[in-house]
Amino acid sequence: MFLTVLYARAGAGVFSRAVTAGFWRMLLAASRIAGRARGKVLSFGGPLNLALFVLIWAAILTLGAGRILHPEGAGCV
Score class of each variant (00 low, 15 high):
1 M>D: 00
39 G>Q: 14
57 W>G: 09
6 L>Q: 12
30 A>K: 12
42 L>N: 07
14 V>G: 03
30 A>M: 12
38 R>S: 15
24 W>M: 15
44 F>R: 12
52 L>T: 03
77 V>A: 04
72 E>R: 05
11 G>N: 00
30 A>Q: 15
52 L>K: 00
14 V>K: 04
33 I>L: 13
10 A>G: 15
32 R>E: 11
76 C>G: 11
17 R>Y: 09
51 A>W: 09
9 R>L: 14
41 V>W: 03
19 V>T: 01
39 G>T: 11
61 L>I: 02
63 L>N: 04
25 R>Q: 13
1 M>F: 07
56 I>D: 01
22 G>S: 07
14 V>W: 04
70 H>M: 02
55 L>D: 11
10 A>D: 15
21 A>C: 08
33 I>T: 14
22 G>L: 02
44 F>D: 13
50 L>T: 12
28 L>M: 11
35 G>A: 10
62 T>A: 11
21 A>D: 15
29 A>F: 09
75 G>C: 01
17 R>W: 06
77 V>E: 01
52 L>R: 04
2 F>L: 06
75 G>H: 05
67 R>W: 03
16 S>C: 08
7 Y>R: 03
39 G>L: 10
59 A>N: 03
64 G>E: 06
8 A>R: 13
38 R>A: 12
65 A>V: 07
27 L>N: 10
32 R>H: 08
14 V>P: 01
61 L>V: 02
21 A>P: 04
40 K>M: 13
2 F>E: 03
43 S>Q: 13
70 H>I: 01
28 L>W: 10
19 V>D: 05
2 F>K: 00
30 A>Y: 02
72 E>S: 11
25 R>V: 14
46 G>T: 15
48 L>K: 08
5 V>E: 05
48 L>R: 03
47 P>T: 08
52 L>V: 06
34 A>V: 10
1 M>S: 08
8 A>P: 08
67 R>N: 05
68 I>F: 02
41 V>Y: 04
47 P>V: 09
76 C>V: 13
22 G>K: 02
4 T>I: 06
46 G>D: 13
18 A>S: 12
48 L>C: 13
36 R>L: 10
65 A>E: 05
59 A>E: 03
63 L>Q: 07
8 A>H: 15
37 A>I: 10
34 A>K: 00
24 W>S: 08
35 G>N: 08
73 G>M: 03
52 L>N: 02
30 A>R: 15
46 G>V: 15
28 L>K: 14
72 E>L: 06
44 F>S: 15
7 Y>A: 04
48 L>H: 11
54 V>C: 00
19 V>E: 01
58 A>P: 00
62 T>V: 05
9 R>H: 12
73 G>P: 00
75 G>I: 00
61 L>H: 01
27 L>Y: 05
10 A>I: 12
28 L>S: 13
27 L>R: 09
76 C>S: 09
12 A>F: 09
1 M>L: 06
12 A>K: 08
17 R>D: 10
10 A>L: 13
64 G>N: 07
73 G>N: 05
13 G>R: 05
58 A>C: 11
41 V>R: 01
31 S>H: 04
